[in-house]
Design a protein around this nucleic acid. Structure first.
Lengths: 137, 137
DNA sequence: TTTAAGTCCATAGAGTTGGTGGGGTGTTAG
DNA sequence: CTAACACCCCACCAACTCTATGGACTTAAA
């Protein structure tokens, strides 16, 4: 399951997608409109900035905004940043690979199953973008 | 990601699938062969028994064994028992549904995306069975 | 130089995960 | 009938993660 943090991140990103190309948006505005705890949201947005998804401006008239066209930002990318691995096992993760202990990958049936799950999942998450977070216009 | 408990459960179930129809298997044997902490494994097997996956016999000659043909037991069922929801959001879970707070499902783009992920995942996990845990014979 | 707004750091409570210890209960062999 | 056996059940624990919150600091605009 996605963490609360991830769900907050997507709410915020949906809001920023609506406001794309309309200048910086205040953390406090997002917090109120999307009902996300202010300080928690602060941490999340900062993390997304460090991951090159968002840009920010300090001082009066400042705030956060999307760095790229929302239609170019994959949902999979966001999940990896705020929620971690997408795969169900470390040994089948593309971006967070770690081998299993006491388990021969070549002879592990679970390994094969989880590769299929991973591919099926990525097939969705790599094709959906922030644009898809908004209801149809 | 699957919990360690879930990974242990699958290791144990793979072992019991190998020994299907060969009588009860000792917890201690599984623990040693699959390198799973004994007491932890005890809890896991008990839970699988209560969920109707395993059967047990006490006393000398006792142990655990699969209640049904391994080819009839879906991987999805096991995941739900030992790991909980398969969906990435409570509001798209078939077996553990809970509605989102402050979120209109009909107008939530993330909701739709996560339904697709869920369906893609289930498409694999509902067709794979314990039999698939073993390498090809 | 005041005010607005993001940045950074530290902490902390709650819940979950992973694991252990010990006694209880039912079964079988002799 | 009783000893050995093996699962059953309960309680507990340390470590970690998740979900925050508080306060001081930095940068930018008016």
């Amino acid at each position: 399951m996605l963490s609360k943090k991830s769900q907050y991140a997507f709410k915020a990103l949906a809001y920023l997608t609506e406001r794309y190309n309309q200048g910086p948006v205040l953390i406090s505005e997002i917090s109120i409109k999307k009902r996300v705890p202010l300080k928690f949201l602060e941490n999340i947005l900062l993390e997304l900035k460090k991951a090159d998804i968002l840009e920010s401006k300090k001082g009066k008239g400042g705030g956060y905004y999307l760095k790229k066209d929302p239609a170019q930002v994959k949902v999979a990318t966001i999940v990896r940043i705020v929620n971690g691995p997408i795969a169900m096992l470390p040994c089948v993760s593309l971006n967070f690979y770690r081998r299993c202990e006491n388990c021969d990958e070549a002879a592990c049936g679970l390994h094969d199953i989880m590769i299929q799950v991973r591919d099926a999942t990525l097939n969705v998450l790599e094709t959906k973008t922030l644009r898809d977070l908004l209801p149809m216009a």
